[in-house]
Simulated assay, not measured.
Amino acid sequence: MSGTEKSKAHAEKLKGKAKETVGRAVGNDRMTAEGRADQAKGSARQAKEDTKDAFRH
């Protein structure tokens, strides 16, 4: 996985986790759902890059 894409995936997952935590703390279901969606996007980006890496080697 390239360093840039790896950083983006990790940052997106962290952003999502933070958003989910804040959403739960304040009782905002929408923010919690958005946080989970951001985490899923980060995981998908990471899986995509892992697949690309598998075919490079």
Rank of each mutant, 00 (worst) to 15 (best):
D38R: 10
S2R: 05
A11N: 11
K15G: 03
A54L: 07
K48D: 13
G27S: 09
A54E: 05
S2E: 11
A37I: 04
D38H: 10
T51I: 10
A25T: 10
E34G: 05
A18T: 00
E5V: 12
A33I: 01
E34K: 10
A25V: 03
N28W: 00
T21I: 06
F55C: 00
T21H: 05
A44E: 12
K15A: 03
K52D: 09
M31E: 06
R45N: 09
K17G: 00
V26M: 04
T4N: 14
K48N: 11
A47S: 02
A33Y: 09
K6A: 09
L14E: 00
K19V: 01
Q46C: 02
R24Y: 07
A33F: 06
R24T: 15
A54V: 03
K6Q: 12
E5C: 07
E12I: 03
H57Y: 08
A40N: 10
R24K: 15
K41T: 02
Q46K: 14
T4F: 14
K17S: 06
A33H: 08
V22L: 07
E34W: 06
K15H: 08
E12V: 00
S2T: 11
H57F: 04
A11S: 08
A25C: 09
R56S: 08
E5Q: 12
H10W: 11
A37M: 07
E12L: 12
E5S: 07
G3W: 15
K41L: 05
G23L: 14
Q39G: 10
A44I: 14
A40G: 00
T21G: 02
R24P: 12
G42C: 02
K17Q: 15
K48A: 14
K41F: 00
A18Y: 00
D38L: 10
G27K: 09
G42A: 06
K6L: 10
R56L: 05
E49K: 03
K13C: 01
M1G: 12
E34M: 02
M31W: 09
R36L: 10
A37T: 05
D53Q: 12
D50Q: 13
Q46R: 07
A11I: 13
D29V: 11
D29F: 11
K6N: 10
Q46E: 14
D50Y: 06
T51P: 03
A25S: 14
A33N: 14
A9Y: 06
R45L: 11
K8L: 06
K17A: 07
R36K: 14
E20D: 15
K15M: 01
S43W: 11
A37F: 05
A25G: 06
E20K: 15
K52F: 13
E49Q: 13
Q46W: 03
T21W: 00
A44G: 03
A9K: 02
T32R: 08
A18D: 00
T21D: 12
A11Y: 12
R36I: 10
T21E: 11
G27V: 07
S43F: 01
